[in-house]
Amino acid sequence: MRNVIFCGVGGQGIVLASKLLAQAALDEGRTVRAAETIGMAQRGGSVMSHVRYSTEGGERCASSLVPAHAADLIVSFEPGEAVRALPYLGTDGIVITAAAAQIPVTAALANSPYDGSAARAYLEGACGALVLDCESVCRSCKSPRVVNMALMGAAFATGRLGISRASLDAALGKLVKPAFLEMNRMAFSLGAEMAGRRWQS
């Protein structure tokens, strides 16, 4: 059984990332369950997607939601949201997060000092999280909307997904319009490269 959590702020492209992983797992013949946040929380609220799939000869899950302390991988689009998702992290689980903080209106109004730095420091200390400069990937790809693919690439590079790159790429072709395919592939590669350096060393 593999348990993967995607989390972040509504509107960051989290649903596409979780759909991509679920589709790739299905195409590899796994038993897959998934769940996404839909509705009012999409308007700038905290959102979370769960993807669960069987591994070869392994057990199947009953629920679409990852239980507490069971995630093999938490892929976060925002450092504070990664901290919020930590109760899901399994003993040997890995955390990947985009570095950039999303500052909510409440924090801007309250003069709060939230800028994500404390969250990033905590994540690195608490679970050796990989903090990824997704903004540089966005600059290289000339689009602010490829954070999800940069993170997917990084998630692949951890080796924890147990899904082949070919399956992920084929699923991408099914889910993304042809005009955006190359851009998304590039972001995936750049994300994988950045994370690969960490997991090779």
């Binding site: 901290v83 909510p104 404390a118 905590y122």
Partner: peptide
């Protein structure tokens, strides 16, 4: 997990 969890902003939908 280490106890010194940083303070997280609330994110009500807006």
């Amino acid at each position: 997990l280490p106890a010194d969890t940083p303070e997280l902003p609330v994110r009500p939908p807006v």
